[in-house]
Computed example of a mutant assay.
Amino acid sequence: MNVFVIGANGQIGKQLVERLKQDGKHEVTAMVRKQEQLDEFKANGYQVVLGDLEGDVETLKQAMSGMDAVVFAAGSGGSTGADKTLLIDLDGAAKSVEAAQANGNIKHFVMLSALKAEDRSAWPDSMKPYYVAKHHADRLLEQSGLDYTIVRPGALTDDAGTGKVNVDNVSTGEIPRADVAAFLAHVIGRQEAANKAIDLVKGDTAIEETI
């Protein structure tokens, strides 16, 4: 499949495009926001396009031209305020879903969300804007008519990946970003993962055996 990764310069996005390139199962196109990021990705042999989640839907649609799958792995980052969370994590995700709908050829949309995003009672006060954004972005995707997979990882760490996760009866936990990237790569294009929201923390099951 031709896979379009939004947020390819992020901590998980970078590891995802690298894994997709190494695996060789899909053709990957990275979307980045800045020219210097584009230059870096090109220098490393990636297909890459410029895109701005604060821009318009039509431009995103054009960037997705020829793609079969979209992975939304973008985020405003922990150092920004609620305004950027609203613009990137919510409206940027919404625009990406709208662009995928308008594209007409997208067979699978994979959304990187957060554990407990669906459960308002579980949101910590300090992160409510982030969870509000994830909650409504997920709902928009679920209602879009696109085949989707929502991946909801627990607390993210920079530990080395283990290649093993838990996706069953998850209540809390953490997971290395490397394993989140590996799991995203694993679910792309898999019919078994279609129209599901999957909670994800570190565990004892090999990623390849989860779906």
Results as ranks from 00 to 15, higher is better:
Gly75Thr: 07
His108Leu: 11
Ala94Val: 15
Ser96His: 01
Val201Trp: 04
Asn105Trp: 01
Lys107Ile: 03
Leu50Val: 03
Pro153His: 00
Leu140Trp: 11
Val5Cys: 09
Gln11Ser: 14
Gly173Ser: 09
Asn166Gly: 03
Val97Ser: 01
Gln47Asp: 13
Ser121Arg: 11
Glu58Asn: 13
Val71Met: 03
Ile150Gly: 10
Ala133Asn: 06
Gly51Thr: 03
Gly24Cys: 06
Glu192Trp: 11
Pro124Leu: 02
Glu36Asp: 15
Ala178His: 09
Leu20Ala: 09
Lys202Pro: 10
Lys61Asp: 07
Thr80Asp: 15
Gln22His: 14
Phe41Pro: 01
Ala185Lys: 00
Asn44Ser: 15
Lys42Asp: 01
Gln22Phe: 14
Leu112Pro: 05
Val49Gln: 15
Ala69Val: 00
Val5His: 07
Ala133His: 06
Asn2Met: 02
Gln15Asp: 09
Gly45Asp: 05
Gln101Val: 12
Leu16Ile: 03
Asn166Asp: 06
Gly161Asp: 05
Gly7Ile: 02
Gln191Ala: 11
Ala133Trp: 00
Thr80Met: 13
Ala114Lys: 09
Ser96Asn: 05
Asp91Trp: 14
Leu20Arg: 10
Ala82His: 04
Lys196Ser: 09
Ile198Tyr: 09
Asp168Ser: 13
Met31Lys: 00
Met127His: 12
Gly163Thr: 12
Ser65Leu: 12
Lys164His: 10
Ser79Pro: 13
Ala194Asn: 13
Leu156Pro: 08
Gly13Lys: 08
Asp147Gln: 13
Thr162Gly: 09
His136Asn: 12
His186Lys: 06
Asn103His: 03
Leu141His: 10
Lys134Asn: 08
Ala93Lys: 03
Tyr46Ser: 08
Asn169Ala: 12
Asn9Ser: 15
His26Asn: 05
Leu200Trp: 01
Asp199Arg: 07
Thr205Gly: 11
Ile198Trp: 04
Gly55Glu: 00
Val49Phe: 14
Glu174Tyr: 13
Glu142Met: 14
